[in-house]
């Protein structure tokens, strides 16, 4: 078994947290994990991404080859599209539909969303709204992790345990808040076939 995930977004959107929780869940499962990050400009609003590789066998390379990612998981819609060359033919794109507009020439949002229609396998939903409705607007990244957890071959319990461990030092209230958003995201990716665009 191998599962390669390219996590993408804009600096400060919580990409590293997503990758860390995923890595911890996979390690608990006894899998081999490699994670590499581009985060030099993370604090300055640039495009950032992390390569996360999970496998039952030892992994040689730190980075995912082009056309090799089983999932592009993005907390921002245009950033998801930026990494499509990495997506495997059978791969899923799981993306937040809420744009992060910090550049003057950000394209028309409808055109960004429209580009997803060409992707057979994708989940696109407003994770910012979902996190807000679940009571933790800052935990948008956990909504994305929840949606991704539908496809990553690890049990829900592994994710829950990894989230608990990641936020344990911040207290039980923060742990529960993150878990609530995770579960809402997981539910969002489980709409009946036909209601989920492109399934």
């Amino acid at each position: 078994m191998k599962y390669d995930i390219l996590v993408a977004g804009v600096g400060g959107q919580g990409i590293i947290s997503i990758a860390t929780v995923l890595a911890e869940a996979a390690l608990a499962e006894g899998l081999h994990v490699k994670q590499s990050e581009i985060h030099g400009m993370a604090q300055r609003g640039g495009a950032v991404h992390s390569h996360l590789r999970l496998s039952s066998r030892p992994i040689a390379a730190d980075v995912i080859p082009l056309g090799g990612a089983d999932m592009v998981l993005s907390v921002e819609p245009m950033e998801a599209l930026r990494y499509l060359p990495y997506l495997a033919p059978s791969g899923w794109v799981v993306a937040n539909s809420m744009p992060f507009v910090n550049i003057a020439n950000y394209p028309e949002v409808a055109r960004v969303h429209g580009a997803f229609e060409a992707l057979e396998r994708h989940v696109l939903f407003d994770a910012d709204r979902l996190a807000k409705e679940a009571g933790s607007p800052k935990a948008m990244n956990m909504a994305m992790l929840g949606a991704a957890s539908r496809f990553v071959p690890l049990s829900e319990e592994r994710f829950v345990a990894a989230i608990r461990s990641r936020f344990a030092s911040k207290g039980e209230r923060i742990v529960e808040a993150n878990l609530a958003v995770f579960r809402a995201g997981r539910a969002a990716a489980n709409l009946p076939v036909g209601e989920r665009i492109g399934t």
Partner: peptide, 17 residues
């Protein structure tokens, strides 16, 4: 052969905080 980046995608250079 891999998918291309859709034309709609523009560069997102870093900026000052």
């Amino acid at each position: 052969e891999v998918r291309g980046v859709p034309d709609v995608v523009v560069a997102r250079p870093p900026s000052m905080c």
